Amino acid sequence: MSKTFEADEVKQHKSEESAWVVVDGGVYDVTEFLEDHPGGKKILLKNCGKDASEAFWTYHSEKVLQKTAAEYKIGEVKPGSKL
C-alpha cells in the first residue's frame, strides 16, 4: 500500500536536503537525483514542494515517469489536498 501525504507535508520538502515533487498526484523524493538530473538540480528545486505536473509533462514522456521516476516514488498526495 502506498503512503498518503498531506499537502502541508509535501510543501516542507523543497531544499537540497529533502526535495519532493508531485506529478499527477504521485509524490517523488528526488533528493538523491538532484545531481544526476540532466536539466540540472536548479529546475528540480524550483518545482519541489508543489505539483510539478505541468512542468514535468512539458519536457518528459510517460516513459520517464514509468522507468526513471518510479524508483523515487514514495506515495501519493491525499485526495483533495491543495498544493
Rank of each mutant, 00 (worst) to 15 (best):
66 Q>N: 15
35 E>K: 14
67 K>T: 12
65 L>P: 05
14 K>Y: 01
62 E>N: 13
39 G>W: 08
27 V>I: 11
56 F>A: 04
6 E>P: 06
66 Q>C: 03
32 E>M: 04
46 K>W: 00
38 P>S: 00
19 A>E: 07
59 Y>P: 03
24 D>C: 06
65 L>R: 15
52 A>V: 10
24 D>V: 04
30 V>N: 09
44 L>A: 00
64 V>P: 02
35 E>G: 09
43 I>W: 01
12 Q>L: 13
18 S>I: 01
17 E>C: 00
41 K>N: 11
66 Q>G: 05
64 V>T: 14
52 A>S: 15
5 F>L: 07
35 E>V: 03
60 H>Y: 09
28 Y>K: 01
31 T>S: 03
24 D>L: 03
26 G>K: 15
45 L>K: 11
54 E>L: 13
22 V>P: 13
7 A>K: 14
19 A>S: 13
65 L>Q: 14
58 T>Y: 07
39 G>V: 00
60 H>F: 06
51 D>Q: 06
34 L>I: 04
18 S>H: 02
23 V>W: 09
18 S>P: 02
11 K>P: 00
27 V>E: 07
43 I>Y: 07
44 L>K: 10
53 S>V: 05
28 Y>Q: 07
50 K>F: 02
64 V>W: 05
58 T>Q: 13
57 W>M: 12
62 E>K: 15
32 E>N: 02
47 N>C: 08
25 G>I: 06
37 H>V: 00
60 H>N: 09
30 V>L: 13
54 E>M: 10
22 V>Y: 12
32 E>L: 02
14 K>S: 10
37 H>W: 05
31 T>F: 01
36 D>T: 05
46 K>L: 12
40 G>T: 02
40 G>N: 06
9 E>Q: 08
31 T>H: 01
34 L>P: 08
43 I>Q: 03
51 D>Y: 06
26 G>M: 05
31 T>R: 03
58 T>P: 04
65 L>G: 02
19 A>T: 03
12 Q>Y: 02
5 F>Y: 15
38 P>I: 07
29 D>M: 02
56 F>I: 04
9 E>F: 07
56 F>M: 05
28 Y>I: 07
57 W>E: 08
19 A>I: 06
52 A>E: 10
42 K>W: 05
30 V>W: 09
37 H>E: 04
44 L>D: 04
48 C>E: 06
22 V>C: 14
41 K>R: 12
11 K>G: 05
11 K>E: 10
33 F>V: 08
44 L>I: 09
18 S>Y: 05
17 E>F: 05
16 E>K: 13
58 T>E: 14
7 A>L: 06
49 G>S: 10
42 K>E: 12
59 Y>Q: 11
6 E>D: 13
29 D>S: 04
66 Q>K: 15
41 K>A: 07
33 F>L: 12
43 I>N: 01
59 Y>D: 11
68 T>E: 14
49 G>N: 10
24 D>A: 03
36 D>Y: 12
31 T>I: 02
23 V>G: 01
13 H>A: 06
26 G>Y: 08
65 L>M: 15
50 K>S: 08
48 C>K: 04
50 K>A: 05
22 V>I: 14
48 C>I: 00
48 C>S: 11
42 K>Q: 09
9 E>K: 07
16 E>P: 03
59 Y>L: 13
13 H>C: 08
26 G>D: 14
39 G>I: 01
41 K>F: 00
